Amino acid sequence: MMKQLLIGLGIVITLLSCGAKDTGTAKTSVHGRISGSKAKMVYLEEVPLGSMNPQVVDSAKLDKDGSFTLHSQAAEATLLNLRLDQFSFPILSLVNDTSEVDVTVRMNDQQPDFASDYDVKGSPASQRMKDYIVKVTGYLQDIYRDAVTFDSLRKQPGTDSLQAVATGRKKQTGIKLREYAFATVQEANNPALSVFALTYYLSAAGNQAYELEPVSDEELDKTIADLVKRYPAHKALAALKKSMDDANAQKPASLVGRPAPEFTLPDVNGKPVSLNSFRGKYLLVDFWASWCGPCRRENPNVVKAFQQFKDKNFTILGVSLDETKEAWMKAIVQDQLKWTQVSDLKHWESSVVGLYGIQGIPYNVLLDPDGKVIAENLTGSSLERKLSEVLK
């Protein structure tokens, strides 16, 4: 899926690169000083968008005062990562929009492989990226605090109004974050910064704890297409669009508007359960597995939706791609999935995989009482919104 492709690019946010005419430089020298670190070496990485494998292009031994100079010969605008010693993750990233960049890095006393703060001079795009990260982090911290407040309040009787305030504030913060992220994507004058801002938001939205508004495939398509139009000579951005177009071409046709393919699978007691037996109700067919981390993180949202709408002619059918009954049953209990569950315990060889064109989980389809698919791939807040729309 296109979104999964870009989210994959943003899992480690700093591992991105892209290029465009007049937005990069043929040579960039990074001068810096790192304090509070016992590291001996510093490495400069470029990360080709096509391979997504960071390539070390220069290294230097840190002087006694932590100073260093590194050089990049990247021909297009790209992100340059600074990494210390054997640490897996970069301590920061820069954009090569100028020939000389100066950074001052202060490492975290408690976590010596992370920077607590840094200053950058000489690179407007790098400074803009830092400002973006700081502001988005602030929004996410506000959302987290309101989530903690809500969880605390709901354990106390007579706090419904206060719970509503915390929930409303959290939602508004999420809206502001999304608007800020896409404004940065559109207003940035460097393609590397635009793609960075986009993938940063996609990664945050992929964390269900924040309940951020997801980005639809259509919106993602348009955003990348607009960037390609703005930077027609941007080779890496063009390659990214081609990868997305190729993924889109291979994606199965949407099931929306069509009758859901019929199947019958055994439940936890071995009793056959058919999809048709749920006719007359709105039904969410939820494909998941105990071994699927994203599925397990999404399950609280599904549980919340079930509790909210189960008395409105709505139910859920869980379809697991597990291999062992023990793991399947344990996950059902742990995640409190109190609706019908079925599985043939055949993992990706399950008959439903080809039947529904499943390329990844979690995945779901929402059926109307006649068994027709009216929505698919509903996660997080989008699931609650769609159910609120159809179950008035």
Rank of each mutant, 00 (worst) to 15 (best):
P300L: 02
V215I: 09
S99C: 04
C292R: 06
L79I: 05
T98D: 00
V134W: 00
P259N: 03
G19S: 13
V148C: 15
S382E: 15
S67N: 13
D370M: 11
A192N: 07
V353G: 00
V12K: 07
V57T: 12
S93R: 11
L337C: 05
G318R: 05
S37L: 09
G318M: 09
D65R: 13
E100R: 06
L265M: 11
D22Y: 12
F263N: 05
G360K: 06
A125K: 02
W348Q: 05
L237V: 08
L212D: 08
F314S: 10
R296A: 06
L321Q: 08
K235G: 02
P362K: 05
V319D: 00
T104Q: 09
L49W: 01
P362N: 05
F89G: 00
T69S: 15
D151P: 03
N108M: 10
L6M: 08
K130F: 02
D146M: 09
N81D: 00
Y356G: 03
K155I: 05
D267T: 15
L162P: 03
R128K: 14
V195Q: 04
V365Q: 00
Y43T: 04
K386D: 07
E213Y: 07
E100M: 05
D322Y: 02
Y356M: 01
V228K: 14
H31E: 14
Q336C: 10
K271V: 13
L378R: 09
R154L: 04
I133T: 07
A327K: 10
E298V: 10
T25H: 04
L62A: 03
K64A: 14
G66T: 10
G36C: 13
E218V: 10
T184S: 12
H31S: 15
E218T: 14
G158H: 02
Q359G: 15
D22S: 08
V273S: 03
D119R: 08
W348R: 12
V47F: 06
F87K: 02
T340N: 11
G158W: 02
S320R: 09
T23W: 04
D58S: 14
H347Q: 01
N377Y: 13
S388M: 15
S116A: 09
A236S: 14
W348V: 08
L227W: 01
A239S: 12
K304Y: 12
S254F: 11
V319R: 01
A236D: 11
E100I: 04
P90N: 00
K242Y: 12
I91F: 00
P124H: 01
H71D: 04
T223K: 05
E323V: 14
N207P: 03
L140M: 12
S277V: 15
R33W: 12
A181Q: 04
S161K: 12
Q341L: 11
E376I: 08
E46V: 08
D246T: 14
W348T: 08
H234I: 09
E45R: 13
K171P: 01
V134T: 03
E326M: 07
V256I: 15
E384L: 14
F87R: 02
A305D: 01
K235M: 08
A192F: 10
K281G: 02
L355G: 02
A247W: 07
Q172G: 05
